[in-house]
Protein backbone atom coordinates (compact mmCIF):
# COMPACT_ATOMS: atom_id res chain seq x y z
CA UNK A 1 0.00 0.00 0.00
CA UNK A 2 1.26 3.47 -0.87
CA UNK A 3 0.54 6.50 1.24
CA UNK A 4 1.45 10.08 0.42
CA UNK A 5 1.15 12.80 3.06
CA UNK A 6 2.17 16.21 1.88
CA UNK A 7 0.67 19.43 3.20
CA UNK A 8 -3.09 19.13 3.12
CA UNK A 9 -2.98 16.17 0.78
CA UNK A 10 -3.21 12.55 1.74
CA UNK A 11 -3.49 9.85 -0.91
CA UNK A 12 -3.57 6.09 -0.36
CA UNK A 13 -3.47 3.58 -3.15
CA UNK A 14 -2.54 -0.09 -3.63
CA UNK A 15 0.88 -1.12 -4.85
CA UNK A 16 1.01 -1.34 -8.63
CA UNK A 17 -1.99 0.95 -9.10
CA UNK A 18 -1.92 4.25 -10.97
CA UNK A 19 -3.42 7.42 -9.52
CA UNK A 20 -4.42 10.33 -11.72
CA UNK A 21 -4.45 13.74 -10.07
CA UNK A 22 -7.12 16.04 -11.44
CA UNK A 23 -7.67 19.65 -10.55
CA UNK A 24 -7.96 23.08 -12.11
CA UNK A 25 -4.95 24.75 -13.73
CA UNK A 26 -2.65 26.54 -11.34
CA UNK A 27 -3.84 24.71 -8.23
CA UNK A 28 -0.35 23.36 -7.50
CA UNK A 29 -0.32 19.86 -8.97
CA UNK A 30 3.12 20.26 -10.57
CA UNK A 31 4.45 21.77 -7.35
CA UNK A 32 3.15 18.77 -5.42
CA UNK A 33 5.01 16.39 -7.74
CA UNK A 34 8.19 18.47 -7.51
CA UNK A 35 7.98 18.39 -3.72
CA UNK A 36 7.73 14.61 -3.82
CA UNK A 37 10.75 14.40 -6.12
CA UNK A 38 12.86 16.82 -4.09
CA UNK A 39 11.74 15.06 -0.91
CA UNK A 40 12.27 18.10 1.27
CA UNK A 41 8.98 17.71 3.11
CA UNK A 42 6.15 15.29 3.61
CA UNK A 43 6.06 11.52 3.59
CA UNK A 44 5.83 8.99 0.80
CA UNK A 45 5.35 5.61 2.39
CA UNK A 46 5.44 2.21 0.76
CA UNK A 47 4.40 -0.49 3.23
CA UNK A 48 5.06 2.02 6.05
CA UNK A 49 8.65 2.81 4.90
CA UNK A 50 9.13 6.49 4.15
CA UNK A 51 10.99 6.56 0.83
CA UNK A 52 11.76 10.27 1.19
CA UNK A 53 14.11 9.54 4.10
CA UNK A 54 16.39 7.60 1.74
CA UNK A 55 19.07 9.16 -0.49
CA UNK A 56 17.59 10.13 -3.84
CA UNK A 57 19.46 7.40 -5.72
CA UNK A 58 17.78 4.73 -3.58
CA UNK A 59 14.20 5.95 -3.74
CA UNK A 60 13.34 4.19 -6.98
CA UNK A 61 11.34 7.12 -8.33
CA UNK A 62 11.24 7.88 -12.05
CA UNK A 63 10.20 11.45 -12.83
CA UNK A 64 8.97 12.70 -16.19
CA UNK A 65 8.92 16.43 -15.54
CA UNK A 66 6.62 18.91 -17.23
CA UNK A 67 8.07 20.07 -20.55
CA UNK A 68 10.11 16.86 -20.79
CA UNK A 69 13.59 18.21 -19.99
CA UNK A 70 16.39 15.97 -21.29
CA UNK A 71 20.15 15.96 -20.80
CA UNK A 72 21.39 19.01 -22.71
CA UNK A 73 23.71 18.97 -25.71
CA UNK A 74 23.90 15.20 -25.95
CA UNK A 75 22.46 12.55 -28.18
CA UNK A 76 19.36 10.68 -27.01
CA UNK A 77 21.32 7.44 -26.94
CA UNK A 78 23.96 8.87 -24.58
CA UNK A 79 21.34 9.73 -22.01
CA UNK A 80 19.36 6.52 -22.29
CA UNK A 81 22.42 4.28 -22.33
CA UNK A 82 23.94 6.01 -19.30
CA UNK A 83 20.66 5.72 -17.39
CA UNK A 84 20.21 2.09 -18.40
CA UNK A 85 23.72 1.25 -17.20
CA UNK A 86 23.25 3.15 -13.96
CA UNK A 87 19.95 1.40 -13.23
CA UNK A 88 21.00 -1.96 -14.67
CA UNK A 89 18.23 -2.12 -17.24
CA UNK A 90 19.32 -4.57 -19.92
CA UNK A 91 16.24 -4.49 -22.14
CA UNK A 92 16.24 -0.75 -22.70
CA UNK A 93 16.53 -1.14 -26.48
CA UNK A 94 13.36 -3.25 -26.55
CA UNK A 95 11.59 -0.59 -24.51
CA UNK A 96 12.97 2.08 -26.86
CA UNK A 97 11.40 0.19 -29.76
CA UNK A 98 8.07 0.02 -27.96
CA UNK A 99 8.15 3.76 -27.22
CA UNK A 100 9.10 4.49 -30.86
CA UNK A 101 12.36 6.04 -29.70
CA UNK A 102 14.73 3.92 -31.83
CA UNK A 103 14.77 6.36 -34.79
CA UNK A 104 15.63 9.20 -32.39
CA UNK A 105 18.67 7.60 -30.73
CA UNK A 106 21.26 9.33 -32.92
CA UNK A 107 19.64 12.77 -32.70
CA UNK A 108 20.85 15.51 -30.33
CA UNK A 109 18.24 16.12 -27.63
CA UNK A 110 18.03 19.81 -28.56
CA UNK A 111 16.44 19.21 -31.98
CA UNK A 112 13.64 16.85 -30.90
CA UNK A 113 10.04 17.94 -31.29
CA UNK A 114 7.80 18.26 -28.23
CA UNK A 115 6.21 14.85 -28.74
CA UNK A 116 9.58 13.17 -29.34
CA UNK A 117 11.01 14.75 -26.19
CA UNK A 118 8.06 13.44 -24.19
CA UNK A 119 8.56 9.90 -25.48
CA UNK A 120 12.26 9.98 -24.59
CA UNK A 121 11.52 11.54 -21.18
CA UNK A 122 8.93 8.85 -20.43
CA UNK A 123 11.38 6.12 -21.34
CA UNK A 124 14.07 7.75 -19.19
CA UNK A 125 11.64 7.90 -16.25
CA UNK A 126 10.77 4.25 -16.77
CA UNK A 127 14.45 3.25 -16.79
CA UNK A 128 15.03 5.10 -13.51
CA UNK A 129 11.88 3.88 -11.75
CA UNK A 130 12.07 0.96 -9.42
CA UNK A 131 8.90 1.60 -7.43
CA UNK A 132 7.06 4.70 -8.55
CA UNK A 133 6.61 6.81 -11.69
CA UNK A 134 5.86 10.49 -11.30
CA UNK A 135 4.41 11.78 -14.54
CA UNK A 136 3.66 15.47 -15.04
CA UNK A 137 1.67 16.13 -18.21
CA UNK A 138 3.63 13.32 -19.88
CA UNK A 139 1.77 13.21 -23.20
CA UNK A 140 0.49 16.77 -23.57
CA UNK A 141 2.38 17.28 -26.86
CA UNK A 142 1.11 14.08 -28.48
CA UNK A 143 -2.05 13.64 -30.49
CA UNK A 144 -4.88 11.65 -28.95
CA UNK A 145 -4.04 8.32 -30.54
CA UNK A 146 -0.29 8.52 -29.92
CA UNK A 147 -0.95 9.66 -26.34
CA UNK A 148 -3.17 6.65 -25.61
CA UNK A 149 -0.71 4.25 -27.28
CA UNK A 150 2.28 5.53 -25.36
CA UNK A 151 0.40 5.57 -22.06
CA UNK A 152 -0.77 2.01 -22.60
CA UNK A 153 2.77 0.91 -23.50
CA UNK A 154 4.01 2.60 -20.35
CA UNK A 155 1.29 0.95 -18.29
CA UNK A 156 2.18 -2.49 -19.72
CA UNK A 157 5.87 -2.01 -18.95
CA UNK A 158 5.02 -0.67 -15.48
CA UNK A 159 2.70 -3.59 -14.72
CA UNK A 160 5.46 -6.08 -15.54
CA UNK A 161 7.57 -4.53 -12.77
CA UNK A 162 4.71 -3.73 -10.39
CA UNK A 163 5.39 0.02 -10.66
CA UNK A 164 2.84 2.49 -9.39
CA UNK A 165 2.39 5.94 -10.84
CA UNK A 166 1.13 9.39 -9.96
CA UNK A 167 -0.07 11.08 -13.13
CA UNK A 168 -1.03 14.70 -13.62
CA UNK A 169 -2.86 15.51 -16.82
CA UNK A 170 -5.36 18.09 -17.94
CA UNK A 171 -6.82 15.58 -20.37
CA UNK A 172 -9.34 13.29 -18.77
CA UNK A 173 -8.74 10.80 -21.58
CA UNK A 174 -5.14 10.31 -20.34
CA UNK A 175 -6.38 9.45 -16.86
CA UNK A 176 -9.14 7.18 -18.24
CA UNK A 177 -6.66 5.36 -20.49
CA UNK A 178 -4.14 4.52 -17.78
CA UNK A 179 -5.24 5.14 -14.20
CA UNK A 180 -7.06 3.03 -11.63
CA UNK A 181 -7.84 5.86 -9.24
CA UNK A 182 -8.43 9.56 -9.45
CA UNK A 183 -7.40 12.00 -6.72
CA UNK A 184 -9.68 15.00 -6.82
CA UNK A 185 -7.68 18.03 -5.78
CA UNK A 186 -10.54 20.14 -4.49
CA UNK A 187 -12.45 17.51 -2.54
CA UNK A 188 -9.21 15.77 -1.41
CA UNK A 189 -10.82 12.43 -2.26
CA UNK A 190 -9.30 9.40 -3.94
CA UNK A 191 -11.98 7.72 -6.02
CA UNK A 192 -12.02 4.71 -8.25
CA UNK A 193 -11.54 6.04 -11.77
CA UNK A 194 -14.96 4.75 -12.92
CA UNK A 195 -16.64 6.29 -9.91
CA UNK A 196 -14.87 9.58 -10.60
CA UNK A 197 -15.99 9.44 -14.20
CA UNK A 198 -19.53 8.69 -13.09
CA UNK A 199 -19.54 11.67 -10.74
CA UNK A 200 -18.19 13.92 -13.42
CA UNK A 201 -20.94 12.72 -15.72
CA UNK A 202 -23.65 13.39 -13.18
CA UNK A 203 -22.36 16.78 -12.12
CA UNK A 204 -21.71 18.02 -15.58
CA UNK A 205 -23.31 15.90 -18.31
CA UNK A 206 -22.64 18.50 -20.97
CA UNK A 207 -18.93 18.45 -20.17
CA UNK A 208 -18.98 14.65 -20.05
CA UNK A 209 -20.64 14.46 -23.42
CA UNK A 210 -17.95 16.79 -24.74
CA UNK A 211 -15.24 14.58 -23.26
CA UNK A 212 -16.44 11.26 -24.58
CA UNK A 213 -18.70 10.26 -27.45
CA UNK A 214 -21.38 8.47 -25.44
CA UNK A 215 -23.31 5.55 -26.92
CA UNK A 216 -26.02 3.29 -25.61
CA UNK A 217 -24.75 -0.30 -25.70
CA UNK A 218 -27.77 -2.57 -26.14
CA UNK A 219 -25.92 -5.79 -25.19
CA UNK A 220 -24.74 -4.51 -21.84
CA UNK A 221 -27.70 -2.20 -21.31
CA UNK A 222 -25.15 0.46 -20.28
CA UNK A 223 -23.99 3.82 -21.46
CA UNK A 224 -20.58 3.33 -23.05
CA UNK A 225 -17.90 5.96 -23.69
CA UNK A 226 -15.04 5.98 -26.20
CA UNK A 227 -15.15 2.22 -26.58
CA UNK A 228 -14.25 1.70 -22.92
CA UNK A 229 -16.53 -0.40 -20.75
CA UNK A 230 -17.23 2.51 -18.49
CA UNK A 231 -20.31 3.01 -16.35
CA UNK A 232 -21.29 6.56 -17.07
CA UNK A 233 -24.67 6.47 -15.35
CA UNK A 234 -27.86 7.91 -16.80
CA UNK A 235 -27.41 11.02 -18.86
CA UNK A 236 -30.23 13.44 -17.98
CA UNK A 237 -29.96 15.14 -21.33
CA UNK A 238 -30.80 12.00 -23.27
CA UNK A 239 -33.73 10.61 -21.23
CA UNK A 240 -37.15 12.15 -21.71
CA UNK A 241 -39.85 10.91 -19.37
CA UNK A 242 -43.40 11.23 -20.67
CA UNK A 243 -46.89 9.96 -19.73
CA UNK A 244 -49.19 8.51 -22.33
CA UNK A 245 -53.00 8.59 -22.13
CA UNK A 246 -54.14 5.31 -23.68
CA UNK A 247 -57.29 5.23 -25.81
CA UNK A 248 -59.34 2.27 -27.14
CA UNK A 249 -57.47 -0.47 -25.28
CA UNK A 250 -58.16 -3.89 -26.79
CA UNK A 251 -56.94 -7.31 -25.64
CA UNK A 252 -55.47 -10.23 -27.61
CA UNK A 253 -54.14 -13.62 -26.47
CA UNK A 254 -51.56 -13.75 -29.30
CA UNK A 255 -49.38 -10.94 -30.60
CA UNK A 256 -51.55 -9.03 -33.03
CA UNK A 257 -48.68 -8.18 -35.36
CA UNK A 258 -47.35 -4.79 -36.45
CA UNK A 259 -49.76 -1.92 -36.70
CA UNK A 260 -49.40 1.65 -37.82
CA UNK A 261 -52.04 3.14 -35.54
CA UNK A 262 -51.92 0.96 -32.42
CA UNK A 263 -49.23 0.33 -29.82
CA UNK A 264 -48.82 -3.12 -28.33
CA UNK A 265 -47.68 -3.99 -24.80
CA UNK A 266 -47.33 -7.40 -23.21
CA UNK A 267 -49.25 -7.02 -19.94
CA UNK A 268 -50.64 -9.08 -17.08
CA UNK A 269 -54.30 -9.04 -16.08
CA UNK A 270 -54.65 -7.72 -12.53
CA UNK A 271 -58.36 -7.58 -11.83
CA UNK A 272 -61.60 -8.13 -13.73
CA UNK A 273 -64.47 -5.95 -12.44
CA UNK A 274 -68.03 -6.40 -13.69
CA UNK A 275 -69.57 -2.98 -14.34
CA UNK A 276 -73.03 -4.00 -15.60
CA UNK A 277 -74.76 -6.89 -17.44
CA UNK A 278 -72.66 -6.50 -20.61
CA UNK A 279 -69.45 -4.65 -19.64
CA UNK A 280 -66.35 -5.50 -17.57
CA UNK A 281 -63.31 -3.35 -16.67
CA UNK A 282 -59.88 -5.03 -16.91
CA UNK A 283 -56.97 -3.65 -14.88
CA UNK A 284 -53.75 -4.47 -16.72
CA UNK A 285 -50.23 -4.28 -15.21
CA UNK A 286 -47.10 -3.40 -17.16
CA UNK A 287 -44.47 -2.99 -14.52
CA UNK A 288 -45.70 -0.05 -12.48
CA UNK A 289 -47.89 1.13 -15.30
CA UNK A 290 -51.64 0.61 -15.19
CA UNK A 291 -53.86 0.25 -18.23
CA UNK A 292 -57.61 -0.03 -18.13
CA UNK A 293 -59.67 -1.82 -20.80
CA UNK A 294 -63.45 -1.76 -21.13
CA UNK A 295 -64.66 -4.98 -22.83
CA UNK A 296 -67.77 -7.22 -22.87
CA UNK A 297 -68.39 -10.27 -20.64
CA UNK A 298 -68.64 -12.22 -23.84
CA UNK A 299 -65.10 -11.24 -24.82
CA UNK A 300 -63.90 -12.25 -21.31
CA UNK A 301 -65.44 -15.67 -21.79
CA UNK A 302 -64.36 -16.08 -25.44
CA UNK A 303 -60.72 -15.27 -24.66
CA UNK A 304 -60.84 -17.14 -21.34
CA UNK A 305 -59.38 -14.16 -19.48
CA UNK A 306 -58.51 -14.68 -15.79
CA UNK A 307 -56.48 -12.59 -13.32
CA UNK A 308 -52.72 -13.29 -13.59
CA UNK A 309 -52.92 -14.23 -17.28
CA UNK A 310 -50.41 -12.66 -19.68
CA UNK A 311 -52.06 -10.97 -22.70
CA UNK A 312 -51.29 -8.36 -25.35
CA UNK A 313 -52.90 -4.97 -24.93
CA UNK A 314 -53.30 -2.82 -28.02
CA UNK A 315 -54.13 0.85 -27.70
CA UNK A 316 -54.05 4.14 -29.48
CA UNK A 317 -52.06 6.95 -27.94
CA UNK A 318 -54.46 9.71 -26.95
CA UNK A 319 -51.95 12.24 -25.68
CA UNK A 320 -48.26 12.32 -24.91
CA UNK A 321 -47.44 14.56 -21.99
CA UNK A 322 -44.33 15.35 -20.01
CA UNK A 323 -44.82 14.70 -16.25
CA UNK A 324 -44.79 18.39 -15.38
CA UNK A 325 -47.53 19.16 -17.83
Amino acid sequence: MWELKLGAHQIRWPRGAWVGISGPSGCGKTQLLKQIVSGQSGQLQLEYNNLLERPQALRGIGWAAQGAPLWPNQRVEQQLRALAERHKSENWLALAAEFQVLPLLEKPTAILSGGERQRVALLAALLCADKLLILDEPVSALDQQAASEILMALRRAADQRNLSALLVSHQWRDLAASCDFCYQWQSRQTLDINRAQHELTEQSPVQAAALWPVQWCQDRRQWMAAGHAIETGPLPTTINRVSIDAHEVSIARRHPGPSSIANTLQVEIGKITALDKTSALLTLHWGELRLYSLITHRAVRALDLTPGLGVFAQFKAHAVKSPQA
Binding site: K34, V37, S38, Q56, A57, L58, I61, G62, W63, A65, P69, W71, P72, N73, Q74, Q79, A82, L83, R86, H87, A124, C128
Partner: peptide, 21 residues
Protein backbone atom coordinates in the same frame (compact mmCIF):
# COMPACT_ATOMS: atom_id res chain seq x y z
CA UNK B 1 16.68 18.30 -9.95
CA UNK B 2 16.04 15.92 -12.85
CA UNK B 3 19.60 14.59 -12.72
CA UNK B 4 19.40 14.06 -8.97
CA UNK B 5 16.05 12.30 -9.31
CA UNK B 6 17.63 9.99 -11.88
CA UNK B 7 20.04 8.79 -9.21
CA UNK B 8 23.07 10.69 -10.50
CA UNK B 9 25.72 11.56 -7.92
CA UNK B 10 27.36 15.01 -7.87
CA UNK B 11 30.08 14.04 -10.29
CA UNK B 12 27.58 12.52 -12.73
CA UNK B 13 25.31 15.59 -12.50
CA UNK B 14 28.35 17.73 -13.31
CA UNK B 15 29.41 15.51 -16.19
CA UNK B 16 26.03 14.86 -17.81
CA UNK B 17 24.15 18.10 -17.11
CA UNK B 18 26.28 21.01 -15.89
CA UNK B 19 29.28 20.51 -18.17
CA UNK B 20 27.23 20.07 -21.39
CA UNK B 21 25.23 23.22 -20.51
Amino acid sequence: QLGQSQGLNRFAVFRHIILPC
